[in-house]
Design a protein around this nucleic acid. Structure first.
Length: 354
DNA sequence: AACCCGTGGAA
DNA sequence: TTTCCAAGGGT
């Protein structure tokens, strides 16, 4: 049972600061207007999962311009949404985004549910996003815990337990300081504080509205919180990709399987990136190899992709599923970053592009 | 529970 | 240059 009024000073100090210093962001209703659109709140929250505000802003505008409502998004083609998401990363989010939009538009009559529990049941909405949408879009009291809140709370209470084991302790502390009213503003205020003042390194304690309430501020090194366990080293992998270009100015592209790494995204044909030392190319041809492999770093491994180039006669088509894509429209293919860079490298060897 | 899943900016 | 890590979710 939550005890009323235990830490109301923290919430009131923070909200007073937020009323003056809140960041103006495209998905935020202007100050004073209580008109948060659940569609825009949900879309922004999904885009912001593990992704910086600066990276999200252009994608948010592109999506809301093209699909202004959840019904419009639900009616979009899968390939269009995946291509529009290209470059933002974590592509399972885009697949779940569409599944969620279609569930809301179809089963729920176009209205997002207002309760945390029913939001949590939708695809791509976990504990954090359910709480954030319930609080920000619907004014419900919900305990919103993201990486910013974890950091701020760990510092406020100088929590010594290392992450991720500290999660229950941090959530309980966040619950204690979450107010009954303005929970959405409180959540956004905590995240603004974490993004602009209570930053991971070199926090600006001198201008922090919660300095007097902060146990970490009274220690020698506030930035030492939250404590984290050492992380494992990233393994390195190698792979091969094939650029097959036809004399009429087209290149052979494939779509990756719906699950797993870069799932559902358009791509160059490539080997798996495990151990196979010398995989066979898709077809017999006069292959040349680019001098510099494309280097790319994923979340849990780094990759060096060697690109092989062949120029094919117009009557040859590689085996398996794929499509001939016009070289002058390569930007519209919706490549994830690895293949966008691989295509850029291969285009230097292109014979058929103006 | 531990692992998988992208990208790019900051220091 | 390398390292860190961001409005996490799914399995």
């Amino acid at each position: 049972m939550r005890v009323e009024g235990t830490h109301t000073k923290i919430a009131s100090d923070l909200l007073a600061h937020y009323d003056v210093h809140a960041r103006r962001l495209p998905w935020r209703a202007p100050p004073g207007s209580n008109a948060a659109d659940p569609y825009r709140v949900w879309l922004s929250e999904v885009m912001l999962q593990q992704t910086t505000v600066a990276a999200v802003i252009p994608y948010f505008h592109a999506f809301t311009d093209r699909w202004p409502t959840v019904d419009a998004l639900a009616g979009a083609q899968d390939a269009d949404v995946m291509a529009a998401w290209a470059g933002l990363g974590y592509y399972a989010r885009a697949r779940n985004l569409l599944a969620c939009a279609r569930a809301v538009a179809g089963d729920l009559g176009g209205a997002f549910p207002a309760s945390e529990e029913r939001l949590r049941a939708l695809p791509g909405i976990g504990d954090y996003t359910a709480a954030a949408v319930a609080a920000i879009a619907f004014g419900q009291r919900a305990v919103v815990v993201d990486a910013n809140v974890e950091r701020v709370v760990a510092r406020l209470f100088a929590i010594e337990t290392p992450l991720p084991a500290a999660r229950p302790e941090i959530r309980a502390a966040a619950d204690r300081i979450t107010p009954d009213s303005r929970a959405g503003d409180f959540a956004q205020a905590m995240m603004d504080l974490g993004a602009t003042i209570c930053t991971p390194r070199n926090p600006a304690c001198g201008i922090c509205p919660l300095r007097d309430d902060c146990a970490a501020f009274r220690t020698a090194d506030p930035a030492a919180f939250p404590v984290r366990l050492a992380k494992k080293a990233k393994p390195h992998r190698t792979g091969h990709g094939w650029w097959m270009e036809r004399a009429d100015g087209h290149v052979w592209l494939v779509r990756r399987p719906g699950k797993g790494l870069l799932g559902g995204m358009r791509a160059l044909p490539s080997s798996d990136w495990s151990a196979a030392p010398d995989p066979a190319p898709p077809l017999e041809a006069r292959w040349t190899t680019l001098a510099d492999p494309v280097a790319h770093v994923f979340t849990h491994f780094s990759l060096s992709l060697t690109i092989h180039v062949a120029h094919l006669p117009p009557d040859v088509t590689p085996p398996g599923e794929g499509e001939w894509w016009p070289l002058e429209r390569l930007e519209e293919a919706g490549f994830p970053t690895l293949f966008r860079r691989a295509a850029q490298a291969a285009m230097k060897e292109s014979r058929y592009h103006a």
